[in-house]
Simulated scan of single mutants.
Amino acid sequence: MGTERNEADRRRRRSQLLLKQSFAELMREKGFTAMTIQDITDRADVHRGTFYAHFPDKFALLEQSIRDKFLHMLGRELPPDAGWNPEHLRVLVRIVLEHVRSLYGRCSPIDTINLLFERSVRDELAELLQHWLQRLRADQADWTIHVDTMALMTSWSIFGAAVQWSKAYEDISVDEMTHRVVAVLAEGAGRFAFIDKKM
């Protein structure tokens, strides 16, 4: 019984890999709008039913592809034991900046793709930051803000800075922007702006 389950899992992983590879090839050749599910299944040499066993539509496959690419980038640049420290935070911010610029640097991106891209990257970023902050919190008994709130706000801060930089701040290098974002995250805005102590 265990052997049958292992074989079924192997077939499932293989089918999913074929679909993802076909999707990636067709994205380069035809673009997202022009490709159809039939194109994807023909290229992967699987039935349409196999596609629907894995993904409800091509948008779900796109979203999974975006997540996979982002996670691959993180895995390539960050060590397995990465956590909330200045060096790992700097690497993470730089990856997000470059990944966001790779989408917004293209001509006329499709709104649907933008939305999927943004949601996928923000979700994965928030999940990673939540993991880092939970580990950090174990050493910090006096935190008054929930970890999930901190992770969510931090992920939006990093992602928002990346979007704004990629669209409007071409004169700022990725190194400089990384430095600015990490400085604000690590040291807080209070160091860079006047804060009324009475507030």
Score class of each variant (00 low, 15 high):
L62Y: 07
G49R: 07
F70E: 00
K69M: 06
P79A: 09
Q64R: 01
D68Q: 03
H99K: 10
H72A: 12
E87H: 14
D45H: 11
R67M: 07
L74R: 10
D42S: 15
I66P: 00
P86E: 12
L92Y: 08
R101E: 15
E98K: 07
F55V: 00
H99N: 11
S102V: 00
D68R: 06
L71Q: 13
M73Y: 06
R67G: 05
R76C: 05
A82W: 09
P56H: 12
L74I: 07
I66N: 00
A60W: 11
E63G: 02
E87D: 15
V96S: 06
M73L: 13
H54W: 10
L92H: 15
D57W: 05
F70V: 01
R94S: 13
F51D: 05
G75A: 11
D68F: 01
R76Y: 05
N85P: 02
D57G: 06
V46A: 13
A53E: 09
P80C: 05
H47F: 12
L74Q: 07
M73G: 04
P80K: 12
D42R: 15
R94I: 07
Q64V: 02
R101S: 13
D42T: 15
E98S: 06
L89V: 11
A82F: 03
L62H: 04
H88N: 06
D42N: 15
R43G: 11
H54S: 04
G83T: 14
R76T: 03
K58P: 02
L71F: 08
V91R: 15
L61V: 03
V93Q: 12
I95F: 00
L71D: 08
P80V: 08
V100W: 01
D45N: 12
T50L: 05
L78V: 05
G49C: 05
G49N: 12
L78Y: 08
P56I: 12
N85A: 12
V100N: 01
V96P: 01
F59K: 06
I66F: 04
N85D: 10
F51L: 03
L62D: 00
D45E: 14
G83F: 08
L74V: 03
S65I: 02
V93I: 12
I95S: 02
P80W: 10
F51M: 12
E98W: 03
L78H: 09
K58Q: 09
A53N: 14
A44T: 08
R43P: 04
P56K: 14
L78K: 08
H72K: 04
S102C: 01
H47T: 13
L62E: 02
P80N: 13
E98V: 04
R101N: 10
E77H: 14
A44R: 02
K69D: 13
D57P: 04
V96H: 01
G75F: 12
H47K: 14
L61T: 02
F70S: 02
